[in-house]
């Protein structure tokens, strides 16, 4: 088992959220805010996982259905869904997830390397696993979510 450092910072905090039965997390430093679901305006000729664009205090930002992006099937959005607004590079993107769960620190938990599962779509986006109270939380690589999405969309 290999320890995976998070940008070389010890004690980074992560925010965990739920999609279906699975739990995921992202670096809290990338998260700008969390807001309730608002209907998005569909953008023509965009991949299916791009739900459309929403207005965030004057800025227009795309909302990515993370469930669809991870290959878990498109989410059927309800009023209880939330959008996690994250900054990826210079862009601000909304991630549609089922619910936000917790904030955890990497100091308390060991990030394990993702087991090699050949051909699994999700493996591209998960850069590590965290064990917590018998649950497993997958650490999402935000850069890849957007990069691959762009490569595909372009």
């Amino acid at each position: 088992m290999t320890e995976l450092s998070l940008d070389g910072r010890d004690g980074s905090e992560l925010i965990s959220f739920r999609i279906g039965e699975q739990e995921f997390c992202v670096d809290i430093m990338a998260v700008r805010e969390i807001r309730g679901w608002t209907p998005a305006t569909p953008v023509p000729h965009s991949p299916r996982f791009v739900r459309g664009v929403i207005n965030l205090r004057g800025a227009v930002l795309p909302v990515i259905d993370l469930a669809d992006r991870l290959g878990l099937g498109a989410a059927v959005e309800t009023a209880r869904h939330v959008i996690i607004v994250v900054q990826i590079g210079s862009r601000i993107v909304g991630l549609l997830v089922d619910a936000v769960c917790d904030i955890l620190s990497t100091a308390d938990h060991t990030v394990q390397k993702t087991p090699d599962l050949a051909g699994d779509h999700m493996q591209n986006f998960v850069k590590g696993l965290i064990a917590l109270d018998g649950r497993m939380i997958s650490l999402i690589d935000l850069g890849l979510v957007l990069d691959t999405h762009q490569a595909e969309a372009a």
Binding site: T38, P39, A40, T41, V43, P44, H45, S46, V50, G52, V53, I54, N55, G58, A59, V60, L61, P62, R91, I92, V93, Q150, A153, A154
Partner: peptide, 26 residues
């Protein structure tokens, strides 16, 4: 409002705007 700032250029869409109800229109 630019669509490219956070997303990407899209065929047939020049930009976006925000309507009175707060929703985005292309």
């Amino acid at each position: 409002k630019s669509l490219e700032t956070n997303y990407k250029p899209t065929d047939g869409v020049a930009a976006a705007t925000i309507l009175g109800d707060g929703r985005v229109a292309l």
